[in-house]
Each structure stands twice: as C-alpha cells, then as structure tokens.
Design a protein around this nucleic acid. Structure first.
Lengths: 204, 204
DNA sequence: AGTTCTCTATGACAAATGTCAGTTCCTCAG
DNA sequence: CTGAGGAACTGACATTTGTCATAGAGAACT
C-alpha cells in the first residue's frame, strides 16, 4: 500500500478543476498527477498515468463522466473512480454505481470532507452521499424505455412533434404514442413537463 | 493602497468555494477574508469584513448574485465585485454590468488567469470576457416586457396555461396572449421553446 | 407454442394551445 | 391634453397535442 495517493481530475470547468487541484494538493498524502477537461480524454489519461483514484464530473463535453467511468472499469486498470457532480439526481447515482464507480458525492459537500472521501475510496471503500442514496431508493428504477427516453431528450429542445418525428425518422403518430406513454409514467401534464421531471431524476 | 487584496467569496457549492479559496490563497498578495454560500448573506458579510474585492457566483439560493452586487453597489462600501459564473449568457453580462459589477468571467476561464483578474479588478479596472462581450452586443437588448418574462418563468416549470393563470392571478386568455407575444418575439415554436431560448439568453 | 413486451403505425376524438381582432384601463412623454 | 404603449380581457378560429382502441412485426422468456 502506497503512502501517496496519485489522483486524476476530470472536470470541464477550468476554474473548478484548478480549484479542486489546489484544494487537494494541500493534502500531504495526495498528488494530482493529471487533469482533463473532456470525458473522452479520461481513458487515455488513465492509461498514461495509472492514478490510484479518478475524480470525475458527470457533465462534460465528449462523453459524460458516467460513460467515462464505464470505459475505465472495462479496461481493468485498477483506478477507483469517484464521481463528483453538481446535480444529485437519483438516477445518476444508480447509473454511476452500475457503471463501476467507487463513490458519488455532490459539489455542495463540505470542502474539508473531500480529501477524506478520496482517502476512503483509495482504501477500497465505497463512498456515497447518504441522503442521495435514500432518494435513489425511494425514486425507484427508471420506468422509461430507451425509445421513450429518446423522445423526451428530443422534446427537451422545445420542438414540435412533427420536428421530433422528422429528427428520429418516425411517423408523428408513433412519436405521440411514445410521448403519451412517457407522460403517463412520469405523472406529468405534458411532454415538456415529462422531459423536465425525467431529467431531474437523471433518467435521460 | 494596501499591498494585500482582501477577498470575499460567494458561491453556493461548498466544494467549488473551497477550491477557489485554496487556489487564491496560494497567491501571496491575496487573502480570503470571508466566504458565504447564499446571495442574501453577501451584504452582511461585506459590511462586516469590508473586503477589497468580492467574487460572486450568479446561481445562488436566496437572491441571485447579480441582485447581491446591486445591493452592494447601493450601499457604497467600495468593494469591487467580480461575477464568476457557469453560464456565459449574454443577458447576464449586461445585467451584471448594469448592477455595478466591475468584472464578469465564466468558470471555464483558465485557472491561472483568475488571480490576475482579481488584481486588475482590485486596481480599479474592468474585466470582461471578450467573446462574451461580443455575444452580448450581437444578441441585442432584452425584447421582453416584465409581464412576458413572468409568463416564461412560470411556463418553464412545465405547467399548463390554466396553472400559470392561477399562479399569476390572471385569466387564461391573458396568459395566452402574453405567451403568444413572447413566442413571436423570440421566434420560437411554442412557449416551452420560447422559455428555453429566453433562459439561454439570460433574459429571465 | 404461447405469453409478454416493445416498437411501429393508423384513425378518431377531446382538450389544450397559439393566433387574431378588438376593447378598456392606465401611465408616461411630449 | 393628447398620443403611444403596455396590461388586461373576451371571443372566435385553426392547429397541435394527448388519449384511446386497434393491430402487425419482432424479441425474449416459459
């Protein structure tokens, strides 16, 4: 067991990444060995630096942080991934853990606790925000089919049903049926409401 | 003129605030004298600590950062405010400068430049992201009336026209007319599209 | 082989929505 | 005082949207 934790930082906001780097570099037992600003740069950086822990944001250009973690878990480099995100959406937590993340914290966690969480993840423990874990269990599994998620993602841009149908190469009637199903499952009033709720739950 | 810049940090995300604090504390000529996590705590902290510069996020609970800057400018404490935000929306920049901000930067600014910007603001200069300034000029003034903005804010939650009418104590027909006007002004297809576009421009 | 689920699609119906024309009231600049 | 413009409202109209019944094709599971 090494006494120095080697860390990779992945966050698209330069100022936030730099801040976290400064914060963690204050710890004597943590060394930031690499920083990336895009999800699709994570895997290459992991291969090059083989850090002990990767701190990964979800919202990033390229691929999102959860996909990046999935890729990292697939190649078996042994890096343990800690998701750090702005939005504590229940579905995010579940998807992150399914993808092989070792931990999940939101960005309004007290700054003093971050280093402790990194150490726990490095030591092989799982770290999860307790309140968020409760939410995740309460909100249940994602009830939407893949097709319904596609419809809601397209609907979130604000276009008409005709536009969505053209975008997905389907008939307008089919789009309406899928959206109607999604509205029913989410308990929403209309497709925009449904898209918002599904997004808030991290289902898209 | 003091050789030590005394700084206030206002950001609702504890991890980001802590990171920025660590980042700026590395600079020998900058001292973080106070941190707050809500917009409505800014004014009291300014009064208590009278810092030279305040670094203020826009998205915060209580009141937003732009309103906090307006309050700060109103009482004439001499603190110069630098807005630091996630979203580089044209309307935000204009509103921030109107409120009396001394500078405006987005969170994907390179971390190494932050201290330099704080120094420039402390020295009495104005600091504005050039690309954003161009966008702001190109996008023009907010074409929406106060009433239309209210409608769009309410519509963004996804409710029906009836729900919006009840919320604002208006008849459904009036709400439809205002929304129709807003749709026309934004060139949107429907009210949800209009709400999204107005929000992206920082008009709400 | 049968069951179940998803995806696709059509047609019909009711409700919600967007548009338009026209009116009243109020405020503010000239 | 007058005119311009915004806010509020009504009624009428066409379009869009949400719902439902129905149905065939394909995949997965028993």
């Amino acid at each position: 067991m090494s006494d120095l934790i080697r860390l990779l930082l992945a966050d698209d906001q330069d100022l936030v990444r730099g801040g976290l780097s400064a914060l963690l570099s204050l710890e004597p037992d943590i060394e930031v060995v690499a920083e990336v600003g895009r999800g699709d740069e994570v895997l290459a950086a992991l291969r090059q630096h083989t850090p002990d822990v990767a701190l990964v944001d979800i919202e990033m250009p390229g691929i999102d942080g959860i996909e990046a973690v999935r890729q990292a878990a697939g190649v078996g480099l042994g890096t343990r991934c800690l998701i750090v995100t702005t939005f504590g959406r229940p579905g995010y937590l579940r998807r992150a853990m399914d993808a092989g993340a070792a931990g999940f914290v939101v960005k309004d966690t007290p700054a003093e606790q971050l280093a402790a969480m990194v150490r726990r993840v490095a030591a092989g423990q799982r770290v999860v925000d307790p309140a968020l874990a409760a939410d995740s269990l309460a909100s249940g599994l994602n009830p939407l089919t893949e097709r319904e998620r596609q419809m809601l993602r397209a609907a979130a841009d604000g276009g008409s049903i005709k536009a969505i149908a053209a975008q997905l190469h389907l008939s307008a009637g089919t789009v309406r049926n899928h959206l109607s199903a999604a509205i029913g499952k989410t308990g929403a009033e209309n497709r925009h409401d449904a898209a918002r709720q599904a997004s808030d739950n991290g289902w898209l």
